[in-house]
Simulated assay, not measured.
Amino acid sequence: MSQTHPTAPVASQRIAELIRDRILSGQLPPGTRIVQDELAEELDSSRLPVREALRILQSTGLVTLRANHGAWVSSMTLRDCTLSYQMRERLEPLLLAESMPLLTADHFDRLRALQAEIEATDDVEEFLVLDRRLHWLTYQAQDTGQLTHTVARLWDTTQHYRRAFTHLTARERKWITNAEHHLLIQALEDTDSASAQNVLTTHIRRTRLELTHHPAVFA
């Protein structure tokens, strides 16, 4: 009887992370077909770990597997993205509230350093990386399992549209984003949970509402 090679799960996870990075970086935009044989050849891998990696990414919403048609980078309609942002508006303040009591002075120092880097850059890709780090630093003090997993999925599956939107609106929105970040960090330092959650909700809602004015992002 054949046995699964003990390194197969590790290889699958490694390949899944590589594909995920390519999707989140924009190298593989929504609607791109992922050809298993080509990917296996590129990575000098058998097809099995590639297939398992795609299944892992399907479970996170980043990849869509179509019977007899292969794998594709998942795409969203404006309605899909709107619903995802509405979920974020409700779930992220809850995640923030769970993490907030465990934030330390070191967290606040790192948040302010990240915000300084955000204000110093005009590069959209760098901003997206720093913005993600800033928000997830406010959440990471408390790993709430399913809640953290759900929020991470919402961030990942909307990444492409956040990137396209930011390219279109970065200059006009920069001062608003910076102001809201400062308000959020200050509320966290003041241990003002209600204000921190309100700022975060407004921050997410603003992007959702402005996305509706840019339907071309979803073309």
Rank of each mutant, 00 (worst) to 15 (best):
L103G: 09
Q36I: 14
H214C: 05
D122C: 05
G61V: 02
H181D: 04
E41C: 02
H182S: 14
L130W: 05
L154A: 08
T7F: 01
Q36F: 09
V35Y: 08
S75A: 13
Q3N: 07
Q13Y: 13
S193Q: 13
S59P: 04
D109G: 09
V217A: 03
S2Q: 11
A152D: 14
A196G: 04
H214P: 00
T207C: 07
I118W: 05
E92I: 08
W175R: 13
W72D: 00
T166W: 02
V73F: 02
L48R: 14
L91R: 06
E38Y: 01
I34N: 01
T7V: 06
D122R: 12
V63Q: 02
T144D: 08
Q115W: 06
T82W: 10
Y85P: 01
H181P: 00
R133C: 01
I176K: 13
I19P: 01
L43G: 01
T77S: 15
T202D: 12
L91F: 08
A187E: 05
L62K: 06
Q186N: 14
R171W: 03
P30G: 02
L57N: 03
V63F: 04
T169Y: 00
E52H: 13
S2E: 11
T202A: 14
D109H: 15
A97T: 10
L96D: 05
T169V: 12
P93D: 02
A152S: 13
S25D: 13
L102V: 12
R173V: 09
